[in-house]
Lab assay of single mutants.
Amino acid sequence: PTIVLKVSPEELKALEKAGVEIEKIEKNEDGELYITLTPEALKKAGFE
């Protein structure tokens, strides 16, 4: 199962800087950012 999270541009930068593997980055028509994370990326980021 993949996880989709709504993030701010600042959060996205912080995640990328931390080396979190982001599978997909999407922006909706309201300009909101959503990222898709794999279970492996979540484990690496410390989420179980």
Rank of each mutant, 00 (worst) to 15 (best):
L33H: 06
A41Q: 14
T38R: 02
E48Y: 01
V4D: 04
T38H: 03
E16A: 08
F47N: 07
N28I: 05
D30I: 13
V7N: 00
L12P: 00
E40D: 08
L5D: 00
V4E: 04
S8I: 03
F47V: 15
E11N: 06
E11L: 15
E23P: 03
E21A: 08
S8V: 03
Y34G: 01
I22Q: 00
V7D: 00
G31C: 06
L12S: 01
D30C: 15
L42N: 05
K13W: 08
E21P: 09
K6E: 03
E48R: 01
V7R: 00
K13H: 10
L33C: 09
E26W: 13
L33M: 09
E11M: 15
I35N: 00
G46V: 02
E16C: 08
Y34K: 07
T36E: 08
Y34H: 06
A18S: 09
V7H: 00
L15K: 00
P9V: 12
L37Q: 00
N28T: 11
L33R: 01
T2E: 07
L37W: 01
V4A: 06
E23G: 08
E40A: 07
N28L: 11
E32N: 08
L5C: 13
G46P: 02
K13P: 01
E40T: 04
V7L: 05
K43H: 12
E48T: 02
G46E: 05
L15G: 00
T38M: 04
K43I: 12
T36I: 05
E21V: 05
E16D: 05
S8P: 01
T2P: 12
E29F: 10
A45R: 02
L12Y: 06
E23S: 09
K24A: 12
K13D: 10
Y34P: 00
T36M: 05
P9H: 09
L42D: 02
I3T: 09
K44L: 03
I35D: 00
E29L: 10
Y34C: 09
I25G: 01
T36S: 08
P1V: 10
K17F: 09
K17R: 11
A41H: 03
L37F: 06
K13I: 10
L15C: 03
N28G: 10
K6Q: 11
D30N: 14
E21D: 11
Y34F: 12
D30Y: 13
I35Q: 00
K17C: 10
T2V: 12
K13L: 11
P39I: 14
I35H: 00
L12I: 11
D30P: 03
E48F: 02
K27A: 07
A18D: 05
T2K: 10
A18G: 09
I25S: 03
K44P: 00
E16P: 00
P39S: 09
A14L: 15
E48I: 05
K43V: 12
S8T: 10
P9D: 10
A14S: 08
T36R: 04
K6C: 14
L42R: 07
L15T: 01
G31Y: 03
A45V: 05
T2A: 13
E23N: 10
A45H: 06
I3H: 11
K17Y: 09
T38S: 05
K44W: 01
V20T: 04
A18Q: 14
I22M: 07
K6G: 05
I3A: 05
S8K: 07
E11K: 13
K24T: 06
I22T: 02
V4G: 04
A45I: 08
F47G: 10
K13Y: 10
V4C: 13
K24V: 07
K44F: 01
I3W: 12
E16N: 11
V4H: 07
K43F: 05
E29W: 10
K44G: 04
A14M: 15
P1I: 12
G31N: 08
I3S: 05
K24H: 10
L33F: 12
A18I: 13
K24C: 11
K43E: 15
N28S: 08
I3G: 03
V4I: 11
L33S: 04
F47H: 14
L33P: 01
L42Q: 10
E29G: 13
G31F: 02
K27M: 12
I3F: 08
V20Y: 02
E29M: 09
T36N: 03
P1R: 10
T38K: 03
E48A: 02
A41W: 14
T2S: 13
L15Q: 00
L5N: 01
P9E: 11
K27S: 12
A18T: 07
L37V: 14
G46F: 03
E11V: 15
I25L: 08
P1F: 13
E32W: 13
L33Q: 04
L12A: 03
L33D: 02
P39L: 15
E23Q: 09
E23F: 12
E32G: 09
I22N: 01
V7E: 00
A14V: 15
L33N: 03
K6L: 11
F47K: 13
I35G: 00
E21C: 06
E26T: 11
V20E: 00
I25K: 06
L12Q: 01
P39E: 15
K24P: 01
E10H: 09
T36F: 12
L15E: 00
I22K: 00
